[in-house]
């Protein structure tokens, strides 16, 4: 019998997955900050016209990496993992729903028992779904505003409020997402997964126990 040695850490995201995440993150944050100035007059006025014009140029430029770069990285570098991620995100089990119900108490620091989770917990799934839908809404409303001559005037007009609303919803999602990954005492270790690519076995066992069980079982040679 082979003496099994458990790894200290588990690989969570490949280099391509991480690059895809960060290309989306950086372009989105740039778009959000420059876009808010183009929507809320107080912010725009504080910049002055020249500043706002510059923000507008950044906003238009960043539309390209936001729309295409992440998709390209994921399609070329991690097609299988991306499909797997999408599959998991859109598969909701009973334990996902009970996680969502129980999580708010944990978020505010109260003790709760959270159901066991797979590679992505229900909150991460929700974040992924909102990000994907938001991405589609933002590009569907953003490009018509950038090339108004190619679209109907009615579509261009209604793209403006929808784009603004989508931006604020995604901004709120980002605030929660970044806080949980960087500062929240329970989950901030997860940031390592997106930076180095791996997380400690200990953290994975507490937060993603079903995933840990699955990959350790896969690695173990089937006993005769």
């Amino acid at each position: 019998m082979v003496n099994e040695k458990l790894p200290d850490s588990l690989e969570r995201f490949s280099l391509a997955e991480r690059l895809g995440h960060w290309s989306h993150a950086i372009s989105f944050i740039a778009l959000l900050l420059t876009g808010l100035a183009l929507v809320f007059r107080g912010f725009g006025a504080a910049l002055g016209s020249e500043g706002l014009k510059f923000f507008q140029q950044i906003h238009h430029f960043m539309a390209y990496p936001f729309t295409f770069l992440t998709l390209l990285i994921l399609a070329v570098g991690a097609p299988k993992a991306t499909v797997q991620w999408l599959k998991e995100c859109f598969t909701w089990t009973k334990s996902d729903w009970s996680f969502i119900r129980a999580y708010p108490a944990s978020f505010f620091g109260f003790k709760t028992v959270l159901p066991e989770q797979g590679k992505y917990n229900a909150g991460q799934k929700l974040n992924s779904i909102l990000t994907i839908i938001g991405f589609l809404v933002m590009i569907a409303t953003g490009w018509p505003m950038l090339f108004p001559a190619s679209f109907s005037p009615g579509l261009v007009a209604w793209a403006r409020p929808v784009h603004s609303l989508g931006a604020t919803v995604l901004g709120a999602v980002l605030i929660g997402h970044a806080y949980l990954a960087i500062l929240h005492p329970h989950s901030r270790e997860s940031l390592k997964g997106m930076l180095k690519g791996s997380i400690s076995l200990e953290y994975a066992r507490v937060h993603h126990s079903l995933w840990v069980k699955r990959i350790l079982n896969d690695k173990r040679p089937p006993s005769a």
């Binding site: 409020p161 603004s164 604020t168 919803v169 901004g171 709120a172 605030i175 806080y179 929240h184």
Partner: peptide, 24 residues
């Protein structure tokens, strides 16, 4: 509609994060 609602959504997220930070 969108301007006040958008500001409220962003505000709620910021307040929730601040609350969580303080309590934790």
């Amino acid at each position: 509609v969108v301007h006040p609602v958008g500001k409220t959504i962003l505000g709620i997220a910021a307040v929730a994060v601040a609350g969580s930070l303080v309590i934790n």
